[in-house]
Protein backbone atom coordinates (compact mmCIF):
# COMPACT_ATOMS: atom_id res chain seq x y z
CA UNK A 1 0.00 0.00 0.00
CA UNK A 2 1.39 3.37 -0.92
CA UNK A 3 1.37 6.22 1.52
CA UNK A 4 -0.33 8.66 -0.81
CA UNK A 5 -2.59 6.09 -2.43
CA UNK A 6 -1.61 7.33 -5.86
CA UNK A 7 -0.07 4.13 -7.12
CA UNK A 8 3.29 3.61 -8.74
CA UNK A 9 5.07 4.39 -11.95
CA UNK A 10 5.25 1.39 -14.17
CA UNK A 11 7.74 0.14 -16.70
CA UNK A 12 7.48 -2.83 -19.01
CA UNK A 13 10.87 -3.75 -20.36
CA UNK A 14 11.19 -6.06 -23.35
CA UNK A 15 8.07 -7.95 -22.38
CA UNK A 16 7.17 -10.63 -24.91
CA UNK A 17 4.97 -13.69 -24.59
CA UNK A 18 5.34 -16.92 -26.46
CA UNK A 19 3.08 -19.87 -25.71
CA UNK A 20 4.14 -23.51 -25.93
CA UNK A 21 4.12 -24.46 -29.59
CA UNK A 22 5.99 -21.28 -30.50
CA UNK A 23 2.98 -18.99 -30.94
CA UNK A 24 4.15 -15.48 -30.08
CA UNK A 25 1.16 -13.42 -28.97
CA UNK A 26 3.25 -10.45 -27.88
CA UNK A 27 6.44 -9.15 -29.49
CA UNK A 28 9.00 -7.62 -27.15
CA UNK A 29 7.56 -4.32 -25.95
CA UNK A 30 8.77 -1.53 -23.73
CA UNK A 31 6.32 0.89 -22.19
CA UNK A 32 6.57 3.59 -19.52
CA UNK A 33 3.55 4.64 -17.52
CA UNK A 34 3.76 7.57 -15.12
CA UNK A 35 2.44 7.56 -11.56
CA UNK A 36 -1.26 8.37 -11.50
CA UNK A 37 -1.61 8.15 -15.26
CA UNK A 38 -4.54 6.41 -16.99
CA UNK A 39 -3.34 4.46 -20.01
CA UNK A 40 -5.68 2.63 -22.34
CA UNK A 41 -4.50 -0.41 -24.27
CA UNK A 42 -6.62 -0.35 -27.43
CA UNK A 43 -6.76 -2.78 -30.31
CA UNK A 44 -8.76 -5.47 -32.06
CA UNK A 45 -9.15 -8.87 -30.43
CA UNK A 46 -5.97 -10.91 -30.53
CA UNK A 47 -3.70 -7.84 -30.60
CA UNK A 48 -2.03 -8.72 -27.29
CA UNK A 49 -3.64 -6.07 -25.07
CA UNK A 50 -5.06 -8.51 -22.52
CA UNK A 51 -1.78 -10.45 -22.49
CA UNK A 52 0.03 -7.20 -21.67
CA UNK A 53 -2.43 -6.48 -18.85
CA UNK A 54 -2.01 -9.99 -17.45
CA UNK A 55 1.77 -9.60 -17.50
CA UNK A 56 1.44 -6.35 -15.51
CA UNK A 57 -0.96 -8.10 -13.09
CA UNK A 58 1.40 -11.03 -12.57
CA UNK A 59 -1.08 -13.59 -13.88
CA UNK A 60 1.33 -14.58 -16.62
CA UNK A 61 5.07 -14.33 -16.84
CA UNK A 62 6.76 -12.56 -19.75
CA UNK A 63 9.27 -14.54 -21.82
CA UNK A 64 12.81 -14.72 -20.48
CA UNK A 65 14.43 -11.28 -20.56
CA UNK A 66 11.21 -9.35 -20.03
CA UNK A 67 10.83 -7.30 -16.83
CA UNK A 68 8.01 -5.52 -15.05
CA UNK A 69 9.01 -2.68 -12.75
CA UNK A 70 6.84 -0.90 -10.18
CA UNK A 71 8.51 2.36 -9.11
CA UNK A 72 11.76 0.99 -10.49
CA UNK A 73 11.55 -2.23 -8.46
CA UNK A 74 11.56 -5.46 -10.46
CA UNK A 75 8.34 -7.35 -9.64
CA UNK A 76 8.51 -9.81 -12.56
CA UNK A 77 8.69 -12.85 -10.31
CA UNK A 78 6.28 -11.53 -7.68
CA UNK A 79 2.95 -13.41 -7.94
CA UNK A 80 -0.27 -11.44 -8.31
CA UNK A 81 -1.34 -12.01 -4.69
CA UNK A 82 1.76 -10.14 -3.52
CA UNK A 83 1.73 -7.36 -6.13
CA UNK A 84 -1.12 -5.37 -4.61
CA UNK A 85 -2.88 -4.67 -7.89
CA UNK A 86 -6.60 -4.05 -8.26
CA UNK A 87 -8.27 -5.93 -11.05
CA UNK A 88 -11.64 -5.59 -12.76
CA UNK A 89 -12.76 -8.25 -15.21
CA UNK A 90 -15.19 -8.25 -18.12
CA UNK A 91 -17.26 -10.96 -16.40
CA UNK A 92 -17.17 -8.96 -13.11
CA UNK A 93 -15.87 -12.13 -11.39
CA UNK A 94 -17.73 -11.36 -8.17
CA UNK A 95 -17.82 -13.99 -5.43
CA UNK A 96 -21.35 -15.43 -5.64
CA UNK A 97 -21.22 -16.81 -2.10
CA UNK A 98 -20.66 -13.37 -0.54
CA UNK A 99 -22.81 -10.26 -0.18
CA UNK A 100 -21.92 -6.97 -1.82
CA UNK A 101 -20.14 -5.83 1.35
CA UNK A 102 -18.41 -9.23 1.61
CA UNK A 103 -17.08 -8.86 -1.91
CA UNK A 104 -15.81 -5.33 -1.42
CA UNK A 105 -14.27 -6.13 1.95
CA UNK A 106 -12.64 -9.39 0.89
CA UNK A 107 -9.20 -7.92 0.18
CA UNK A 108 -9.26 -6.12 3.54
CA UNK A 109 -10.27 -9.33 5.31
CA UNK A 110 -7.36 -11.18 3.70
CA UNK A 111 -5.11 -8.38 4.98
CA UNK A 112 -6.56 -8.87 8.49
CA UNK A 113 -7.92 -5.32 8.70
CA UNK A 114 -10.03 -5.16 11.91
CA UNK A 115 -13.77 -5.54 11.41
CA UNK A 116 -14.75 -1.98 12.41
CA UNK A 117 -12.13 -0.42 10.16
CA UNK A 118 -13.14 -2.79 7.37
CA UNK A 119 -16.77 -1.81 7.65
CA UNK A 120 -15.82 1.87 7.48
CA UNK A 121 -13.69 1.36 4.38
CA UNK A 122 -16.35 -0.77 2.66
CA UNK A 123 -18.99 1.90 3.33
CA UNK A 124 -16.69 4.59 1.93
CA UNK A 125 -16.05 2.51 -1.19
CA UNK A 126 -19.76 1.87 -1.70
CA UNK A 127 -20.43 5.56 -1.43
CA UNK A 128 -17.63 6.31 -3.88
CA UNK A 129 -19.15 4.14 -6.61
CA UNK A 130 -22.75 5.02 -5.74
CA UNK A 131 -24.09 1.72 -4.41
CA UNK A 132 -24.41 2.58 -0.72
CA UNK A 133 -27.88 1.03 -0.41
CA UNK A 134 -26.81 -2.43 -1.56
CA UNK A 135 -24.74 -3.43 1.48
CA UNK A 136 -26.28 -6.83 2.25
CA UNK A 137 -27.56 -7.70 -1.21
CA UNK A 138 -26.60 -10.98 -2.77
CA UNK A 139 -24.60 -10.71 -5.97
CA UNK A 140 -27.24 -12.48 -8.06
CA UNK A 141 -29.78 -9.81 -7.10
CA UNK A 142 -27.77 -7.06 -8.82
CA UNK A 143 -28.06 -5.59 -12.30
CA UNK A 144 -25.07 -5.61 -14.69
CA UNK A 145 -24.22 -1.99 -13.92
CA UNK A 146 -24.39 -2.57 -10.15
CA UNK A 147 -22.17 -5.65 -10.45
CA UNK A 148 -19.58 -3.64 -12.32
CA UNK A 149 -19.63 -0.98 -9.60
CA UNK A 150 -19.16 -3.67 -6.94
CA UNK A 151 -16.23 -5.10 -8.92
CA UNK A 152 -14.72 -1.64 -9.14
CA UNK A 153 -15.19 -0.89 -5.43
CA UNK A 154 -13.68 -4.28 -4.56
CA UNK A 155 -10.65 -3.58 -6.76
CA UNK A 156 -9.89 -0.17 -5.23
CA UNK A 157 -10.80 -0.96 -1.60
CA UNK A 158 -7.24 -2.06 -0.75
CA UNK A 159 -5.67 1.03 -2.31
CA UNK A 160 -3.83 -0.94 -4.98
CA UNK A 161 -0.59 0.24 -6.49
CA UNK A 162 -2.02 -0.20 -9.99
CA UNK A 163 -5.64 -0.54 -11.11
CA UNK A 164 -6.09 -2.93 -14.04
CA UNK A 165 -9.35 -3.13 -15.98
CA UNK A 166 -9.97 -5.72 -18.68
CA UNK A 167 -12.87 -4.63 -20.93
CA UNK A 168 -14.97 -3.74 -17.87
CA UNK A 169 -17.88 -2.24 -19.82
CA UNK A 170 -18.11 -4.66 -22.74
CA UNK A 171 -20.85 -6.81 -21.19
CA UNK A 172 -23.17 -3.85 -20.61
CA UNK A 173 -25.74 -2.31 -22.95
CA UNK A 174 -24.87 0.87 -24.85
CA UNK A 175 -26.66 3.51 -22.74
CA UNK A 176 -25.40 2.07 -19.46
CA UNK A 177 -21.92 1.89 -20.94
CA UNK A 178 -21.99 5.61 -21.73
CA UNK A 179 -23.11 6.48 -18.21
CA UNK A 180 -20.55 4.24 -16.54
CA UNK A 181 -17.84 5.58 -18.81
CA UNK A 182 -18.46 9.07 -17.49
CA UNK A 183 -18.52 7.77 -13.89
CA UNK A 184 -15.30 5.85 -14.45
CA UNK A 185 -13.62 8.93 -15.82
CA UNK A 186 -14.52 10.89 -12.68
CA UNK A 187 -13.47 8.00 -10.46
CA UNK A 188 -10.04 7.66 -12.09
CA UNK A 189 -9.46 11.40 -11.74
CA UNK A 190 -10.52 11.46 -8.09
CA UNK A 191 -8.55 8.33 -7.12
CA UNK A 192 -5.45 9.25 -9.05
CA UNK A 193 -4.27 5.62 -9.06
CA UNK A 194 -2.08 4.49 -11.94
CA UNK A 195 -4.63 2.81 -14.18
CA UNK A 196 -4.31 0.48 -17.17
CA UNK A 197 -7.54 0.00 -19.08
CA UNK A 198 -7.96 -2.57 -21.83
CA UNK A 199 -10.65 -2.11 -24.46
CA UNK A 200 -11.42 -2.62 -28.13
CA UNK A 201 -13.80 0.36 -28.06
CA UNK A 202 -12.15 3.52 -29.36
CA UNK A 203 -14.84 5.72 -27.79
CA UNK A 204 -13.95 4.38 -24.35
CA UNK A 205 -10.25 4.81 -25.10
CA UNK A 206 -10.71 8.43 -26.16
CA UNK A 207 -12.90 9.28 -23.18
CA UNK A 208 -10.78 7.65 -20.48
CA UNK A 209 -7.14 7.61 -21.50
CA UNK A 210 -4.51 10.22 -20.66
CA UNK A 211 -2.60 8.24 -23.25
CA UNK A 212 -3.65 5.47 -25.60
CA UNK A 213 -1.48 2.55 -26.64
CA UNK A 214 -2.81 1.26 -29.96
CA UNK A 215 -1.83 -2.36 -30.50
CA UNK A 216 -2.03 -4.75 -33.41
CA UNK A 217 -0.76 -8.28 -33.93
CA UNK A 218 1.22 -8.30 -30.69
CA UNK A 219 3.03 -5.02 -31.27
CA UNK A 220 2.53 -1.38 -30.33
CA UNK A 221 1.33 0.59 -33.36
CA UNK A 222 1.36 3.98 -31.61
CA UNK A 223 1.48 5.54 -28.17
CA UNK A 224 -0.01 9.00 -27.77
CA UNK A 225 -2.66 11.25 -26.30
CA UNK A 226 -6.17 10.78 -27.72
CA UNK A 227 -5.86 13.79 -30.03
CA UNK A 228 -2.39 12.76 -31.23
CA UNK A 229 -3.74 9.32 -32.08
CA UNK A 230 -6.76 10.81 -33.83
CA UNK A 231 -5.20 13.67 -35.73
CA UNK A 232 -1.69 12.34 -36.25
CA UNK A 233 -1.95 8.57 -36.62
CA UNK A 234 1.44 6.96 -37.07
CA UNK A 235 0.37 4.58 -39.78
CA UNK A 236 -2.49 3.33 -41.88
CA UNK A 237 -3.62 0.78 -39.25
CA UNK A 238 -4.04 3.43 -36.55
CA UNK A 239 -5.73 5.82 -38.98
CA UNK A 240 -8.29 3.24 -40.02
CA UNK A 241 -8.80 1.75 -36.54
CA UNK A 242 -9.50 5.06 -34.80
CA UNK A 243 -12.59 6.84 -36.07
CA UNK A 244 -13.54 7.03 -39.74
CA UNK A 245 -10.70 7.76 -42.12
CA UNK A 246 -10.44 8.42 -45.84
CA UNK A 247 -7.29 6.84 -47.20
CA UNK A 248 -6.06 8.65 -50.30
CA UNK A 249 -3.46 7.21 -52.64
CA UNK A 250 -1.80 9.04 -55.50
CA UNK A 251 1.49 10.34 -56.89
CA UNK A 252 2.98 13.29 -55.04
CA UNK A 253 4.46 16.30 -56.76
CA UNK A 254 6.06 18.78 -54.42
CA UNK A 255 3.27 19.42 -51.83
CA UNK A 256 0.43 18.32 -54.09
CA UNK A 257 -1.17 14.90 -54.35
CA UNK A 258 -2.66 14.11 -57.76
CA UNK A 259 -6.06 12.45 -57.45
CA UNK A 260 -8.71 11.39 -60.00
CA UNK A 261 -10.87 14.36 -58.89
CA UNK A 262 -8.10 16.99 -58.94
CA UNK A 263 -5.32 18.06 -56.60
CA UNK A 264 -4.93 18.11 -52.85
CA UNK A 265 -2.39 20.19 -50.97
CA UNK A 266 -0.38 18.26 -48.39
CA UNK A 267 1.96 20.01 -45.95
CA UNK A 268 5.43 18.54 -45.98
CA UNK A 269 4.77 16.41 -49.05
CA UNK A 270 7.76 15.60 -51.21
CA UNK A 271 7.88 14.62 -54.85
CA UNK A 272 7.90 10.87 -55.18
CA UNK A 273 6.02 7.81 -56.21
CA UNK A 274 2.61 6.93 -54.90
CA UNK A 275 2.00 8.28 -51.41
CA UNK A 276 -0.72 7.40 -48.92
CA UNK A 277 -2.49 10.10 -46.93
CA UNK A 278 -5.39 10.26 -44.51
CA UNK A 279 -8.11 12.83 -44.03
CA UNK A 280 -10.99 12.61 -41.55
CA UNK A 281 -14.58 12.89 -42.89
CA UNK A 282 -15.36 15.95 -40.77
CA UNK A 283 -12.25 17.79 -42.06
CA UNK A 284 -13.55 17.90 -45.64
CA UNK A 285 -15.71 20.84 -46.63
CA UNK A 286 -18.29 20.88 -49.42
CA UNK A 287 -18.10 23.94 -51.76
CA UNK A 288 -19.21 24.88 -55.23
CA UNK A 289 -17.41 22.83 -57.88
CA UNK A 290 -16.65 25.98 -59.89
CA UNK A 291 -13.03 26.85 -59.47
CA UNK A 292 -12.45 24.07 -56.91
CA UNK A 293 -9.14 22.22 -57.24
CA UNK A 294 -10.66 18.92 -56.04
CA UNK A 295 -14.10 17.73 -57.05
CA UNK A 296 -16.33 14.66 -56.90
CA UNK A 297 -19.91 13.46 -57.37
CA UNK A 298 -22.28 12.68 -54.49
CA UNK A 299 -23.04 8.98 -54.48
CA UNK A 300 -25.08 8.53 -51.28
CA UNK A 301 -26.53 10.86 -48.64
CA UNK A 302 -27.54 9.78 -45.14
CA UNK A 303 -29.08 12.15 -42.61
CA UNK A 304 -27.72 11.25 -39.16
CA UNK A 305 -29.41 14.06 -37.23
CA UNK A 306 -26.34 15.89 -35.99
CA UNK A 307 -24.67 15.70 -39.41
CA UNK A 308 -25.07 14.64 -43.02
CA UNK A 309 -22.93 11.71 -44.06
CA UNK A 310 -22.06 11.80 -47.77
CA UNK A 311 -20.06 9.42 -49.88
CA UNK A 312 -18.39 11.17 -52.78
CA UNK A 313 -17.25 9.24 -55.86
CA UNK A 314 -14.77 10.23 -58.56
CA UNK A 315 -12.71 12.30 -56.10
CA UNK A 316 -10.17 9.61 -55.19
CA UNK A 317 -9.40 6.05 -56.27
CA UNK A 318 -12.22 4.88 -54.06
CA UNK A 319 -15.30 6.73 -52.75
CA UNK A 320 -14.57 9.06 -49.83
CA UNK A 321 -16.75 9.80 -46.82
CA UNK A 322 -17.60 13.39 -45.88
CA UNK A 323 -19.42 14.54 -42.74
CA UNK A 324 -21.15 17.76 -43.72
CA UNK A 325 -23.43 20.19 -41.89
CA UNK A 326 -26.92 18.80 -41.31
CA UNK A 327 -28.31 21.94 -43.01
CA UNK A 328 -26.43 21.43 -46.28
CA UNK A 329 -28.70 21.13 -49.32
CA UNK A 330 -27.28 18.71 -51.87
CA UNK A 331 -28.69 15.90 -53.98
CA UNK A 332 -27.33 12.52 -54.94
CA UNK A 333 -25.61 12.93 -58.32
CA UNK A 334 -24.60 16.59 -57.70
CA UNK A 335 -21.06 17.55 -58.62
CA UNK A 336 -19.37 19.25 -55.64
CA UNK A 337 -16.06 20.84 -54.81
CA UNK A 338 -14.06 19.54 -51.84
CA UNK A 339 -11.80 21.60 -49.57
CA UNK A 340 -9.50 20.52 -46.80
CA UNK A 341 -7.90 23.03 -44.41
CA UNK A 342 -4.13 23.14 -44.17
CA UNK A 343 -2.75 20.59 -41.75
CA UNK A 344 -5.77 18.27 -41.90
CA UNK A 345 -4.22 15.82 -44.32
CA UNK A 346 -1.66 13.45 -42.88
CA UNK A 347 0.87 11.45 -44.85
CA UNK A 348 1.05 7.87 -43.66
CA UNK A 349 3.55 5.12 -43.69
CA UNK A 350 1.61 2.01 -44.68
Amino acid sequence: MTANGKGVSLRLENCAKTYPGGIQVLSPMTLEIARGETVVLLGPSGCGKTTTLRIIAGLIQPDHGGRVLFDGVDVTSVPIEKRNVGMVFQSYALFPNMTVAGNIGYGLKIRHVPKAERRKRVDAMMQLVGIDTLHDRRVDQLSGGQRQRVALARAVACQPRVLLLDEPLTALDASLRDRLRTDLNQLFRSLGITTIYVTHDQGEAMALGDRIVVMTKGTIAQVGTPDEIYFRPANRFVAEFIGAANILEGPLQSEVMLLPGGQLHIDGGRTGDTAVAMVRPEAIGIVSPDGASWTGRIQTKIFLGDRLRLTVAEAATSAIVVDASNRLVVQVGDRVGLTVPNGSVRLLTS
Binding site: A57, K82, G86, Y106, G107, I110
Partner: peptide, 14 residues
Protein backbone atom coordinates in the same frame (compact mmCIF):
# COMPACT_ATOMS: atom_id res chain seq x y z
CA UNK B 1 -14.94 -19.23 -13.80
CA UNK B 2 -11.13 -18.86 -13.64
CA UNK B 3 -11.52 -15.08 -13.42
CA UNK B 4 -13.20 -15.39 -10.00
CA UNK B 5 -10.09 -17.13 -8.69
CA UNK B 6 -7.88 -14.55 -10.36
CA UNK B 7 -9.94 -11.80 -8.72
CA UNK B 8 -9.39 -13.39 -5.30
CA UNK B 9 -5.66 -13.73 -5.96
CA UNK B 10 -5.45 -10.10 -7.08
CA UNK B 11 -7.00 -9.17 -3.71
CA UNK B 12 -4.16 -10.95 -1.96
CA UNK B 13 -5.61 -14.42 -1.40
CA UNK B 14 -3.06 -17.24 -1.40
Amino acid sequence: DPQVEEAARALGAG
